[in-house]
Design a protein around this nucleic acid. Structure first.
Lengths: 340, 340
DNA sequence: TTGTATGCGTTATCAT
DNA sequence: ATGATAACGCATACAA
């Protein structure tokens, strides 16, 4: 390995001078600077970032922790978009991204996320897909390494939190449906372990209440966010409530499952049943029919997370943020006025 | 920061003893071992991997380099699947993954990929989306850090190469079409800068030749793999060759663009025009009509890349591999017998 | 402007 | 079985 010593020797200067040159310090004569650069090029020296990190305590690396429920890796369009947002922003700050995927196989690991952060010495971390109460995150509140949580809230002096306005988004969805004359609105939610699910449920209830529609327990089903579980949920809801005219689905993937099963049951969308999704993933445009859905700015979630994280990294006193990004109802063809 | 010294002090042993304990070395008495572990737990010590890496020269990290053409990040389904394959395998070997995305904005950077690898001291690297001849990769042949290339071949004593059998896949696609009676088969290729495109073109030509169909220059168009450019390509081909009855598309995304435009032009698929894609991305099942396509095992590409990389990392003498994974024709509803 | 010396946290070598 | 010490490659405080 070619080190700074080799450069120093060949350029006939001290190691510290070389260090000054590669770090663009001012106090070095033009002549030696050029000579050093010349040697660097000649022997193709590349500074060892590991050694550098050990000295200055920074790795210029951000850890990305993903809670993989599916065991298939990062497949959910939401997560992929968020990651791309994260990356595009990280890029501007010249930070690297290291992936740490936690899944159930790892449950025997005794390491919490903060443990991993401390070991690997990442400058900060972004978490996606975790829950408030689980071993990975149980000690997270006291982290000294800055962390940004996406879509689930934990308090801490070094923890920020970015999410969408899930409550408001749900209200928009339900009011859209109510505006079209729907009163019996089924709700196919994600798992209640997810904070977003609880928020969306809250929105569903609030909207109904505002319009004087009674909340009915048996109009709501939980899923694990996959199309597969959604299929069963929608069938169950239909069976128990023959007069349902619309469904609000807590994600587009859930909507995909619901649509599939409804079609199999001979129901037409939106003629017989209106459907609203959540997320506005790329594919939902191409659903048959194209999906009316609540749009989240997934990329922006990633960008904002990084922006905040960078501020936290650079300023120990930076006050943690709790950010709710606005959502927007995108009306396509899966919803229509109720049949008389 | 709590270091090994703190543990040593509190446990009243030397630093070396602590080191032995945390590395599970045998030569330490059960008693002290337990005492040390006790202290470690008490003060929540986590070993500093950076320091460790500096000593033993290994980071347990693999670099992932992605050539982003779109500037939208990693959005291509092919790449996403490959990454998930990479990850699932890396996981077994307890290696971390660090992302380095190169795009055109970075073209002013003077750093090649091997430079970055040497700086960051990754144990190995996997490259996706690059070309044989560009500055990022121009010095790659002489890398001492093991590298696995996906989908483009460069020789080197520390370079392996994983790809699909693109040539064979194309032949299967074309022969399927020929078997259905098609003779005028348009080919919407990706960019010829990509090795896979050249292979697929080769397959197209070979298959035609084998069946005594003359190759026609103006039946072939290049795209940049996006649906958008594919739309124009397909229109141009149709305009110049009214008698085309089928298209072979070098990717499913290209097929998506082609289908879209053909429909807009009033052509029915497969009644008027048959379409074969390449890749078999998840969505192609849901195309209208579901796409007949050449399936690549994208996840396996990622897995194999890692397996080989790990071997290269652990054995300096390991002979680089050139692997071609088999492809498979998946027949769905976008192809049919030619109209009389 | 340049060089010397020290330390970052760890592992490994050599003693004891 | 345990401890002292050097070394990894670099940045930096201090000296010159």
């Amino acid at each position: 390995m070619v080190t700074i010593k080799d450069v120093a020797k060949k350029a006939k200067v001290s190691v510290s001078t070389v260090s000054r040159v590669i770090n663009n310090k001012p106090d070095v004569s033009k002549k030696t600077r050029e000579r050093v650069f010349q040697v660097i090029k000649e022997i193709n020296y590349q500074p060892n970032y590991i050694a550098r990190s050990l000295v200055n305590g920074k790795t210029n690396t951000v850890g990305f922790f993903y809670r993989d429920i599916t065991l298939f890796g990062i497949t959910h369009p939401f997560a992929i978009e968020v990651i791309n947002g994260i990356y595009s922003e990280l890029y501007k700050h010249n930070l690297d991204l290291t992936f740490f995927i936690k899944d159930t196989k790892l449950l025997n690991s005794t390491l919490s996320i903060t443990d991993v952060c401390r070991r690997k010495k990442v400058d900060g971390a972004i978490l996606v897909g975790f829950r408030e109460y689980e071993r990975y995150t149980e000690d997270i509140g006291s982290t000294s390494i800055p962390i940004v949580l996406i879509d689930f809230p934990i308090e801490g002096s070094r923890i920020s939190y970015v999410t969408s306005d899930n409550l408001g988004g749900s209200i928009k969805a339900i009011e859209h449906l109510i505006g079209l004359g729907h009163k019996k609105i089924g709700f196919i939610n994600g798992g209640l372990w997810a904070h977003v699910s609880r928020e969306r449920l809250k929105g569903y209830r609030q909207a109904l209440k505002k319009h004087n529609i009674a909340f009915e327990e048996n109009l709501v089903e939980e899923t694990d966010f996959t199309p597969e579980t959604a299929e069963n949920a929608v069938e169950k809801l239909i069976h128990n409530n023959r007069d349902i005219t619309a469904f609000f689905c807590a994600s587009d993937l859930i909507a995909a499952g619901a649509i599939k099963r409804l079609k199999e049951m001979g129901l037409r969308i939106p003629t017989d049943i209106s459907i609203v999704g959540f997320d506005d993933i790329e594919q939902s445009k191409s659903y048959r029919p194209p999906l009316t859905t609540v749009q989240q700015d997934k990329r922006k979630i990633g960008c904002e997370a990084v922006k905040i994280l960078v501020k936290m990294i650079n300023d120990n006193e930076y006050i943690p943020q709790r950010i709710k990004l606005p959502t927007k109802l995108v009306i396509r063809q899966s919803t229509t006025k109720i049949k008389k």
